[in-house]
Design a protein around this nucleic acid. Sequence first.
DNA 1: TCATTTCCCACGAAAACCCATTGTATCCCG
DNA 2: CGGGATACAATGGGTTTTCGTGGGAAATGA
Lengths: 162, 162
Amino acid sequence: MALEHLFQGSALNAVDGKGRVSIPAFLRGVIERRGDARTIVLAKHEAFPCLSAYDPAYAALKHAKLERLLEKEETNPDAQLEYQQRNLMAFAATEEVPYDSSGRILMPPMMRRKGQIADLVLFLGTGETFQIWNPDLLLKDERIPEDLKDIARFRLEERGAS
Amino acid sequence: MALEHLFQGSALNAVDGKGRVSIPAFLRGVIERRGDARTIVLAKHEAFPCLSAYDPAYAALKHAKLERLLEKEETNPDAQLEYQQRNLMAFAATEEVPYDSSGRILMPPMMRRKGQIADLVLFLGTGETFQIWNPDLLLKDERIPEDLKDIARFRLEERGAS
DNA sequence: TCATTTCCCACGAAAACCCATTGTATCCCG
DNA sequence: CGGGATACAATGGGTTTTCGTGGGAAATGA
């Protein structure tokens, strides 16, 4: 699982009245170099109050990994249930959304709630995936390094907010 | 067994008075990208009180998978019987139903019973296949992760049901 | 005949599409 | 090196298309 192209960098974009959000061009570049889909997959992050996002090619990799794990323990009945649960979380609890020619997605209402998304979203590249935050929640979280919060504050100032 | 197109996402649709159900467009998209059939295969899920669904092309793959499993345990005398049983389940206990131009199937009465389907059905993508649930049964099942139940509750709210 | 099943059309809401504007970064050429 | 032209990014708004759904007409079969 050595992905050639990694997500990096940060950006602060607006959510408009219709719920549309521009995916930063530098993230779209990585998605389109990894595969030729103009689509992102959204999921609730397992640890932080934000969303986790990646491209469909990465989702397929993740799935293949699970499958191989299962075949090793095919006879174990406990493994079967655990496999079912993980598969449900990996696929049923995610949403795949295409972005249009101008690079925007329509933020699905369910993800909007799960990520507590308001009218500004902070994109953070984290290598294999990237995160989508409500910037206010990031600033409040004690687990986030101060240096990263500085970046968030800078992006907010840049835009003239708070 | 690396399927290119995977089922993912969730949706809650109605079963109307005639027993018709819309297959969500995002699932139909995967079916039609995997092969050109406008048809789904329904079966009772092996572990959960719901239905398992997939496209005809996947049924062939599943058969190959069973064969491979048999060859692996050729020396085991129980394996032959088990293979026969699984093969029966995989093919005899399934129904293939086409969907019409507006994407609806007519839920077969036997499957309706086996899946305990009432007037609302929850679709859950699980990668290679997808599941069709009576949402009330999902909420009652202790094996289902809480995060997934949240999604079911959200879909119910979205529609204005309890 | 009566009861299904299949086909067709209709509607409201939501999503996808198209075009326009603004600001910023990049390029080119004197 | 400066300054204008150019390209692209992010965003706003209007229009068209699709989706899920209901209901009725036509076809089928006991």
